[in-house]
């Protein structure tokens, strides 16, 4: 088990040697992730773990990917997608152009879910989906649009619960335990690395989705990131967070109005 002081050493190394700042990540979760990796990779001591992280850039990639959480699924919380479909997309339909940012998109399941919604609302042709993550590796998966077959049954059920009317399988072709989503969906996607801790706003958006990312940050970092989103949202733009995330600790609370019963907020003015 890693000691608090050892976590501090590791975090300092990560900033000084590699430029990754994890100091404002939720400490309890970070500690668990580091302990998990320590066990998985069977380091005999903290010194060995620290040495690998400091000096081996390939291992650093693994460390960052394993310490951050990359769990995601398609149409997670179907009623959330139902609200996007019924309450959010219709208000964007009149725009000549729709810009959406998936911040912390991981392997891209939510981006493809969004593209399917846009396609069914006949809006995909005039939309652009920016999808960013800290990890270059997960973006490669997202860019390829190839996912394991096994969870598709669950995703298909989620899709139907979200108000989807089609047979979900029209969106992909299956082969050897994997599915590849149609390129007509990914054509409007732009994938890029972006670190919410240290990078700035890069465009103005109509909708920003950042679900189950802020839970890994402490309150100070959450406020920084929410301000970044505020700076990146156009007038009357929408911000969507995860099921247990909230604006209640943030200064944005005053200038955003929450859609009834959903973790979707609309910027006022």
């Amino acid at each position: 088990m890693i000691e608090e002081e050892e976590i501090d050493l590791l975090l300092t190394d990560l900033i000084e040697v590699h430029g990754y700042d994890f100091t404002h990540y939720s400490r309890a979760s970070l500690k668990r992730r580091i302990n998990r990796l320590w066990q998985l990779d069977k380091f005999p001591s903290f010194a060995e773990l620290r040495y690998r992280v400091r000096s081996d850039t390939d291992y650093l990639k693994r460390f960052v990917e394993e310490v951050t959480v990359n769990v995601t699924e398609m149409f997670r919380d179907p009623q959330f997608y139902r609200a996007l479909r019924n309450d959010v997309l219709p208000t964007l339909a009149a725009k000549p152009f729709i810009r959406i940012w998936h911040a912390g998109c991981s392997t891209g399941e939510e981006v493809f879910s969004m593209a399917i919604l846009l396609n069914e609302a006949n809006l995909l042709h005039k939309s652009l989906l920016y999808a960013t993550d800290l990890n270059p590796e997960v973006l490669e998966t997202a860019r390829a649009g190839i996912f394991a077959m096994a969870p598709m049954k669950q995703y298909s059920e989620n899709y139907i619960l979200s108000g989807g009317k089609n047979d979900f399988s029209i969106y992909y072709t299956a082969q050897y335990g994997y599915v590849k989503f149609n390129s007509s969906l990914s054509e409007k996607m732009v994938f890029s690395t972006h670190n919410l801790v240290s990078d700035q706003s890069f465009n103005e958006f109509d909708l920003i989705l950042c679900r189950n990312v802020l839970i890994y940050f402490d309150k100070a970092l959450q406020q920084r990131v929410l301000t970044l989103f505020d700076d990146s949202l156009g007038p009357l733009g929408y911000l969507a967070l995860g099921a247990k995330e909230t604006l209640k600790f943030s200064t944005l609370q005053a200038t955003y109005r929450q859609l009834a019963g959903e973790k979707i907020w609309r910027k006022q003015s």
């Binding site: 400490r27 769990v71 099921a243």
Partner: peptide, 21 residues
């Protein structure tokens, strides 16, 4: 504890959620 998240406790006695494995 909410469904589908791990529930963790921080040193300042606040909760953190985690949706890892």
């Amino acid at each position: 504890a909410p469904a589908d998240y791990h529930l963790l406790i921080e040193q300042d006695k606040s909760f953190s959620l985690d949706d890892s494995e």
